[in-house]
């Protein structure tokens, strides 16, 4: 039992090391994904644009739920008018980046892993390598950067949609005064402290999810079972990474 835990820990450390080296290699070969922007645009389409629907709908519903629950709690203290603040702050600081990140990991991250894994299983990567085209530069780097660019945009859209959802419930449905809803929100949501920090978070999550996704895909053993295991691992690892990083970042950013 202890030996199993020990072996697992060592294995994890070892994988982390390999992943760090892979990350270095990836950055080294990233030049081409900007020189040939087309490749990266294509990946933004696949991981960003195709995740739009789920992000927008989830954002709207999360905002609406926040509006309802927040109102329930706040009205006990007679502070309904800070509902806007509550909805906006929780979305911009936490829920936007984190939930968008989790959705992104399971929607786009797993797809990237499966795609790269299958390319490996069917020897497409080996064939590319034999044609003297580096698979890291041609296949991995554009997918990585596509994810890194898409993630903050999705998080912003999630937050904006959520605020709109909160507005729908709070102002349109429940009838809180629209003026105080917005002005309370504006008075306490700070651009640099809240919004910019939220964007920074989502960029970090974008890097984490994309790195895990391309690494797991590249690291499969090239069987159908291996690809499915890698896909699962992408979702699990990157979700845990998001939550862990969120804790670290939050403790740095919002300590004051």
């Amino acid at each position: 039992m202890f030996r199993l835990v020990g072996a697992r820990t060592i294995n994890t450390q070892w994988r982390l090391g390999v992943m760090a080296r892979f990350f270095g290699l990836l950055l080294w070969h990233s030049g081409s994904s900007f020189r040939r922007l087309r490749l990266t645009l294509r990946e933004i389409y696949f991981s960003g644009v195709l995740s739009l629907t789920i992000i927008l709908i989830s954002g709207l519903f999360v905002g609406m739920v926040l509006g309802l629950q927040g109102y329930e709690t706040l009205q006990r203290y007679g502070s309904e008018e800070v509902l806007g603040t509550l909805v906006a702050l929780s979305l911009v600081r936490e829920l936007g980046p984190v939930l968008a990140g989790l959705l992104f990991a399971s929607r786009a991250g797993s797809a990237v892993t499966a795609e790269i894994g299958l390319m490996k299983a069917t020897e497409q990567l080996a064939a590319m390598d034999m044609m003297a085209v580096d698979p890291v530069a041609r296949v991995v780097a554009p997918r990585f950067w596509g994810g890194v660019i898409s993630m903050p945009i999705l998080a912003l859209l999630f937050s904006a949609m959520g605020v709109f959802g909160g507005y729908l419930v709070g102002v349109v449905m429940i009838g809180i005064d629209s003026g105080s809803f917005w002005s309370q929100m504006q008075a306490s949501v700070d651009f640099r402290n809240d919004i910019v920090n939220g964007v920074i978070k989502s960029v970090v999550f974008g890097v984490a999810v994309s790195l895990v996704a391309v690494f797991e895909g590249f690291d499969t053993d090239g069987t159908a079972e291996g690809v499915s295991r890698a896909t699962t691992r992408t979702v699990v690892t990157s979700s845990l990474a998001i939550l862990g990083l969120d804790f670290i970042l939050t403790s740095f950013m919002f300590r004051g």
């Binding site: 020897e123 497409q124 064939a127 044609m131 085209v133």
Partner: peptide, 30 residues
């Protein structure tokens, strides 16, 4: 490797590219 070329046992075509783009791939890359 630019001076050699290999036909893989199972083809190893790029599944996200059309037949045309597959054949054009080495030309566009090199």
């Amino acid at each position: 490797r630019r001076r050699m070329s290999m036909l893989f046992q199972f083809g190893a075509l790029f599944t996200d590219l059309s037949v045309f783009d597959n054949v054009a791939f080495p030309m566009r890359e090199h």
